[in-house]
Amino acid sequence: MSADGFPARQIRAAFTEHTVTVYQAYPPQIGEHAARHGEFPESWSRSRMTWVKPSFRWMMYRSGYGTKPGQEVVLALEISRAGFESALAQAVLSHYHPEAHLDQADWARRLKQSAVRVQWDPERDLDLNPLTHRSLQLGLTGRATRDYADHWLCAVRDVTPLAHRVRELVRAGDQVAAAALLPAEAPYPPVAAEVARELRMSPQQS
């Protein structure tokens, strides 16, 4: 358990019976098209690694509440839970960890073979300061990127106005009102024990 009272490495997300919401931020020519049509434009590369984040606050940190160049449009993307969980099942930590891998050579081999990698980065508060518990970042490449765009994606929403409104309230010192606007994120249902061990997740609660 972290000093913040949360498990140190736990997936927290907005999810339904069938979908889970992740966030990304893009320049207008990509983000606006995706929100309007529910799919990425032809200019969106399926050959590059793309990172998705279930944490709205971490996306606010990454994009500066949708103000950083090239990240002006913040998207909430609903993807299938089946796709999300298949990604977790094949994921490898982006950094070597002695408790998860036999040795560095074993880790490097598995990382090269996998189309999915995981990072646990510090979660952020509304002022974008780091907290002591971690937030999942899921990196997709190769087949996983194509599956994400062409098979897992169920719906796309432009949440840039929400990002800007939360930022305005934070800058005005009204943390309570800002927090009330945040998407509700809850602990994600337990994943397979071997996946949890591989990804160095905190002990799961049933």
Rank of each mutant, 00 (worst) to 15 (best):
S2M: 07
S2K: 10
A3H: 13
A3T: 15
I11F: 05
A14V: 10
T16M: 06
E17C: 08
V20A: 04
V22F: 04
V22S: 07
A25T: 13
Y26S: 10
Q29A: 10
E32A: 14
E32D: 15
H33W: 08
A34Q: 07
A34G: 13
R36P: 10
G38P: 07
G38E: 11
E39A: 06
E42L: 12
W44H: 14
W44R: 11
R46N: 12
R46W: 08
S47M: 04
S47H: 09
R48H: 14
W51D: 06
V52M: 13
V52S: 09
K53T: 14
S55Y: 10
F56A: 04
F56D: 04
R57W: 01
W58Y: 15
M60Q: 13
R62M: 09
R62T: 02
T67E: 10
K68C: 07
P69H: 11
G70V: 11
Q71W: 10
E72C: 13
L75C: 08
A76F: 12
A76M: 07
L77R: 10
I79S: 14
S80L: 12
A82T: 13
S86A: 11
A87Y: 12
A87L: 12
L93F: 01
S94G: 14
Y96E: 01
H97S: 04
P98D: 00
A100Q: 06
H101D: 06
D103W: 00
D103L: 01
Q104P: 03
A105V: 06
W107C: 03
L111A: 07
K112H: 06
K112Y: 03
Q113R: 10
S114F: 04
W120P: 05
P122A: 04
E123W: 03
L126R: 05
L126K: 03
D127L: 13
L128G: 05
L128E: 05
L128R: 04
N129C: 11
N129A: 13
P130G: 07
R134G: 13
S135P: 01
Q137Y: 08
Q137W: 03
G139F: 05
T141E: 03
G142R: 12
R143Q: 14
R143W: 02
R146N: 07
D147L: 05
D147W: 02
D147G: 04
A149T: 12
D150I: 03
H151S: 15
C154D: 14
C154M: 14
C154S: 13
C154K: 14
A155D: 14
A155T: 07
V156Q: 11
V156D: 03
T160F: 11
A163G: 04
R167Y: 04
E168F: 01
L169S: 05
G173K: 08
D174W: 02
Q175I: 15
V176M: 09
A178C: 11
L181P: 10
L182T: 11
P183K: 13
A184C: 06
E185C: 06
P187M: 01
Y188R: 02
Y188N: 02
P189C: 04
P189W: 02
A192T: 01
E194S: 12
E194Y: 08
R197D: 01
E198Q: 06
E198G: 02
E198M: 03
L199D: 06
R200W: 00
M201Q: 12
S202T: 09
Q204M: 07
Q205W: 01
